[in-house]
Design a binder for these strands. Structure first.
Lengths: 238, 238
DNA sequence: AACCATACTTTGTGATCACAAAAATAACTT
DNA sequence: AAGTTATTTTTGTGATCACAAAGTATGGTT
């Protein structure tokens, strides 16, 4: 009595200080972000409840929250699934990232002090280390942390939730893309960004972030990779 | 046994074809958007359930969804409230609107055909009519419809949910601002935007949208108005 | 009168149950 | 054998209940 495609979700130890709903949310979010759930695959409350060994209630709440963040999609049938990707949608998501994140960087720039700059530097060094180890998942997480640390320098910042929503939507594909990444050596523009901060050049910072995002995605969006991913989505929909 | 500040929510007839949760969501969303719930006022599930005459369950789901959209805020205490506004946050929200919406307009531009342009024109005429009647709430709604109709010309558009989140966060204040609006005559840049579309000038369209947002907010963000609103938030927090 | 410990109330969380709508399966007709 | 109807199962929705934690009020002590 097993379903079309089995869902393999990495379960973390549940901390009692956090609510079950929160734990379920983080678990499912991670599964979506890592592409562990095939796009188009229908998710049922009871199935997930059994999988995570909790009652249906926390699942319901987590699914609704993820849907509101565009990480999941509610169809007319009230069925929930990971949204399918198309080449055009992928382009729109990337362009949206560039528009919003370069803006967020520019708005954060006046607030970046030497302490935060040092933190950015040490985070960048960690990324270099992870690259030598070839730990792809770690690179992805640290890269997000770098961007997040930059944008949150602005204490009145309001765009991070929007940016995280875009990350979530791109997540499944980015993971697939970086799995092909070993061949190329990764180039990020973090050094360029930090140099711009030191030179107090806001515009250069904006350009560096734009280049960082565009290049980080450009190599990934080779026709073959994109096509493979979209195929995957299409077939999973069944 | 009444609470600090009574909540007055406009109740619409509930259509049976729509789920109770959806109806609750729309009702609460409208209440937030219209500033009917004071920022800082704690919302409890049971109170709202009694107010809307439904069980706590649909309220829980609606609150979680609105929180995910940044329309509401969950405090550490797990209490839910309308976020309070500050002058700096207000500025950030406006600048974010400009960055994202001008981008959305530019990405939508290649897709705007004569049919959609005609719809934009007729919507603009409706706005003019509403302005003569002085129907402020109607103006606000139609104005949103105008922007939405523009951005959704792009069939692969992904930014509308993000934009709507910003609208929700600015909603309470915009309402207060437009209530002072009768004195000035409203200038919008819709004509300029439509002219740019006719002249096939994407950059001019982007400028028009930027100006439309900035001016629509600039007159509203007079120091007195902003201060009054922030005061209101502060005192309601109690 | 100010402070603190105790009892009481309210509130969010999570589990279970009932029900109607939707899928999936089975049976049947053409 | 393909399509259509009938039956069974699965699934989302919403209501109710139990419980622990947070909040509030109470009462007593210094």
């Amino acid at each position: 009595m097993d379903k079309k495609s089995p869902i393999q979700i990495t379960l973390t130890e549940r901390d009692d200080s956090v609510t079950i709903t929160q734990w379920v949310y983080e678990t499912l979010r991670g599964a979506v972000m890592n592409g562990q759930i095939l796009p188009g695959r229908a998710l049922t409350i009871r199935e997930l409840a059994a999988l995570l060994d909790v009652s249906p209630m926390p699942i319901r709440e987590a699914l609704r929250q993820l849907s509101a963040e565009s990480a999941l999609e509610i169809q007319g049938n009230r069925r929930v699934m990971v949204p399918t990707m198309t080449a055009m949608k992928f382009t729109e998501l990337c362009e949206a990232r560039i528009a919003i994140e370069s803006h967020a960087a520019a708005r954060a720039w006046p607030y970046i002090d030497s302490t935060r700059l040092a933190e950015l530097h040490s985070l960048d060094r960690l990324i270099d280390q992870a690259q030598e180890c070839g730990n792809l998942e770690q690179i992805s997480i640290l890269n997000q942390n770098f961007h997040r640390l930059l944008y949150t320098a602005n204490p009145h910042q309001v765009t991070l939730p929007l940016i995280e929503s875009l990350w979530l939507q791109l997540g499944p594909f980015m993971r697939l893309a970086t799995s092909k990444l070993e061949e190329h050596y990764v180039i990020d523009r973090h050094n360029e960004a930090m140099l711009a901060i030191e030179k107090q050049d806001a515009f250069a910072l904006q350009l560096a972030i734009t280049a960082d995002i565009r290049e980080g995605i450009a190599f990934a969006s080779t026709p073959e990779l994109l096509h493979r991913f979209i195929e995957q989505s299409r077939t999973a929909a069944h």
